[in-house]
Structure formats: C-alpha cells, structure tokens
Simulated assay, not measured.
Amino acid sequence: MPIKKLPRPVRFLLWLLVFALVYFGAQQYQKRNLVSGPVPDYSAPLLQGAYFDSRDLAGKPYVLHFWASWCPICRFEQDTIQALSRDHQVISVAMQSGGREEVQNYMQEAGLNFITLLDEEGRLASRFGVRGVPTTLLINSDGEIAFREVGYTSEWGMRLRLWWMK
C-alpha cells in the first residue's frame, strides 16, 4: 500500500519515526570517537592564569564542556553552561578560539565567568575524541564519563542528567 493512501495519523507517525531514527543515528555517529569509561588525566593552562590538573577533581562530579568562540550553537548554549556553573562544577575548554586575550575578551563581552581551559590548537579536544562543538561530558564522582553529548543540550536536559548521575 502506498504511503499516500495511509491515514494521516499513521503517515505522521511514520515520518516521526523516520525523523527519530535519523536524529538518534546522527547523534550516535557524532559520539563514535568520544572517549568513554574512565576520564584520562589531563592538564592545561587556565584562562585565569594558573595551570589546571584534572587529578585535583578526583572524587568530585563535574561537567567538562568543549566549546569555541566561533561556534554559533556554543553561543546559543553559553547561558545554559553559565547557569549550570552556579550549582555544579563546570570545567570548560575553549577549543581553537585564539589566545588568552581573545578568549578573555569574548567571555567578558558575553558575561561568562566559568572556569575555562585554553586549548588553542585542539590537542586536549583530540585527546577526548572531540570532533565538533559543543561537546559536553558529565563526569561522575568515580571519575567515569557518565554521559556524552555532542551539539546543543538544554539546561533542563543537563540538569536531569546530572541528577540521574548521582
């Protein structure tokens, strides 16, 4: 039976199913290179001037968020990350967004003040398998990656995942 002869609600459900399969398939494809399991030890210069070492967060859950100043989706999501940083430990990574001064200017203009690591050449992102931004990893208190997301995620979606992670 041709699709056009199916009742309208059935056609709608079929299109919805196709959309869902394509969407979730694309999500899984984007996550294929991301690390999973235990978080590798890493260190990087902080925007604020010192040096960050991931071992300092041992035993604490946190959000590891990769973003770029040139990414329009990251700009759209930055208020969500700022809001999360008020209630949760957020470590952000400014990937290939220029030097310290450029990233500081960007964050100041945007009103952002979460902890930011500089990854000018994308080496830290490569270590985590990040190929696109924004990418968000939720790390549990055991040092394991509990959730991996590529692309935009809503504030309530992240908060729900953080709650679930506990």
Rank of each mutant, 00 (worst) to 15 (best):
G25H: 03
M158C: 03
G151N: 07
D79I: 01
M158P: 04
D56G: 08
E77T: 01
G129W: 08
F76P: 00
S92I: 10
Y29A: 06
S36I: 00
D53N: 15
L124R: 08
P40F: 09
A125F: 09
G99A: 04
G151C: 09
N113H: 15
L160F: 10
P72F: 01
L47T: 11
V10W: 06
H65Q: 13
L162K: 00
R100W: 01
R159I: 04
G111T: 02
L162Y: 00
V10C: 05
A50Q: 14
R123P: 00
V63E: 10
P40R: 13
T135S: 15
L64Y: 12
A83H: 09
E109R: 15
G129R: 07
V18I: 12
Q96M: 13
I73W: 05
L47E: 10
W163H: 06
R123D: 15
E144D: 07
P72V: 02
I115V: 11
Q108C: 00
K166Q: 07
S97E: 06
L117C: 10
M95G: 00
A26F: 06
A94L: 08
N105P: 01
Q108D: 12
W163Y: 08
R161T: 00
I73P: 02
V150C: 12
D87R: 09
V10E: 11
G37L: 03
G98A: 05
E101A: 13
N33D: 15
P61Y: 02
D142H: 11
R123F: 07
D119P: 13
K60W: 02
T153R: 14
H88L: 04
W163Q: 07
H88T: 01
A83Q: 15
M158T: 04
L34M: 07
R148N: 05
N140P: 01
S154V: 01
A20M: 03
I139C: 05
S97K: 05
V150S: 14
I73E: 09
D119M: 08
H65E: 10
P45H: 07
Q48W: 02
E121D: 14
L13Q: 10
P7Q: 03
E101F: 01
Q108G: 08
G132R: 08
A125I: 04
D119A: 11
K60N: 04
L16V: 09
V22F: 10
G129C: 12
G37C: 02
I139P: 03
Y62H: 03
T153F: 07
Q104G: 02
L118E: 04
W163E: 10
H88A: 05
N105Q: 14
L118H: 01
I81Y: 09
E109N: 15
S69N: 13
A83T: 09
A94V: 03
Q108V: 08
Q78L: 13
A83K: 14
Q108H: 14
A26Y: 10
Q27L: 10
L34V: 05
L47D: 11
S92R: 13
L6Q: 12
R32F: 00
F114A: 04
D79C: 03
T116Y: 11
F12V: 14
G98H: 06
A83I: 02
A68Q: 06
E120I: 01
D79R: 14
